[in-house]
């Protein structure tokens, strides 16, 4: 526990100082914010998926519920950012509890399936309602928070960093508490866990609600950050899957795995999207620009990041089922 506190504090110090070194390059800032956001989402998912072993395939629902609730409030009643974020958390927790209440009585594949169904219900409902702007989405403008300049990326960097630190803190606390041990027991064997006095239903719901609340805050911050949301940016199944992949690739069930996964995957996606990899292959002469392969790679690699995710996932599951960190983790460190 003490060790985790020290590492988290070090990480906080380095990350807090980072913008000072990088200057205000908006491109880099945007990537860093995305990394922090995916790290928070993956860490949040890790609490219910990695610790309790309950794979949610619908975390976009909580992210989106936060984003939408906050945006709607800010553009209508405008009760201020903190209240709008809190309202988002409330909505997400209600959705999480409804889901958990229905499916956590069941074992096996049901939670995975039901979590997708709930996420789709949320997405389609948002798409069909008027208050959410339907397919048009919501433009979140004229938002202010004290004297902060919300046109700058800096406040959002620190907001996401703060969220990530809180998430890591919560994860570390849970991991070493009775709740954490109970979640691990549930992951390992539900019958055994119940025979040792663990209320499976209660603890799975606790894990899901904590996780949903964090994802919701990430959604709220994101909505204010990009000032425009629609269902394809904050509620797609693709996002739910990316959150899982980030955790798996970094190391499921570990404190730092989700962070590592976010750094790797966001950077990789960015490198592909900006065609850095395609150009690198051509520039280093590994493939010639004139050749068919070269032309194909250069025009297509930019769209291939999800394909690459897919390949990495398959290789990870077949090769190292515990993820990169899980693979190297010392066994038995109680």
């Amino acid at each position: 526990m003490k060790q985790s506190v020290v590492v988290i504090a070090l990480f906080a110090a380095v990350m807090a100082a980072l913008p000072g070194f990088l200057g205000d390059n908006p491109y880099i800032a945007d990537i860093l914010i995305t990394i922090l956001m995916m790290a928070s989402l993956a860490s949040a998912w890790n609490i219910v998926g990695g610790y309790a072993g309950q794979f949610s395939f619908g975390h976009a629902a909580y992210f989106g519920a936060g984003a939408y609730t906050t945006s709607i409030l800010l553009t209508t009643l405008n009760p201020g950012i903190p209240v709008s974020i809190a309202a988002g958390v409330l909505v997400s927790c209600v959705i999480a509890l409804l889901t958990g209440t229905i499916v956590f009585r069941l074992r096996g594949h049901y939670f995975a399936l039901a979590s997708i169904a709930v996420a789709e219900i949320v997405r389609l409902t948002v798409l069909n309602l008027d208050i959410t702007g339907g397919a048009q989405g919501i433009l979140v403008t004229k938002v202010s928070f004290g004297s902060l300049d919300l046109n700058s990326k800096v406040p959002f960097y620190y907001a996401m960093l703060f969220l990530l630190l809180v998430t890591l803190g919560i994860s570390a606390l849970i991991y070493r508490s009775r709740t954490g041990y109970y979640l691990l027991a549930i992951r390992e064997d539900q019958d055994a866990a119940a025979s040792l006095g663990i209320n499976l239903y209660l603890f799975k719901n606790i894990a899901l609600v904590i996780s949903a609340a964090i994802a919701s805050v990430a959604g709220s911050i994101y909505a204010v950050y990009i000032s425009f949301i629609d269902t394809s940016t904050v509620l797609p199944l693709r996002l739910s899957i990316e959150i899982i992949l980030t955790t798996i690739i970094g190391g499921i069930g570990t404190l730092w795995g989700p962070v590592l996964g976010a750094v790797l995957l966001v950077s990789l996606a960015e490198a592909l999207r900006s065609n850095m990899i395609g150009e690198y292959l051509v520039n280093t002469g590994m493939v010639s620009e004139g050749s068919a392969t070269g032309a194909f790679l250069k025009s297509n690699l930019a769209h291939a990041h999800v394909l690459v995710y897919g390949i990495i996932t398959v290789l990870c599951i077949l090769g190292l089922p515990k993820g990169i960190l899980g693979f190297f983790r010392r066994k038995g460190e109680a």
Partner: peptide, 8 residues
């Protein structure tokens, strides 16, 4: 037996 297999 139902050990919590990945725990010590």
């Amino acid at each position: 037996v139902k050990p919590l297999g990945n725990l010590n």
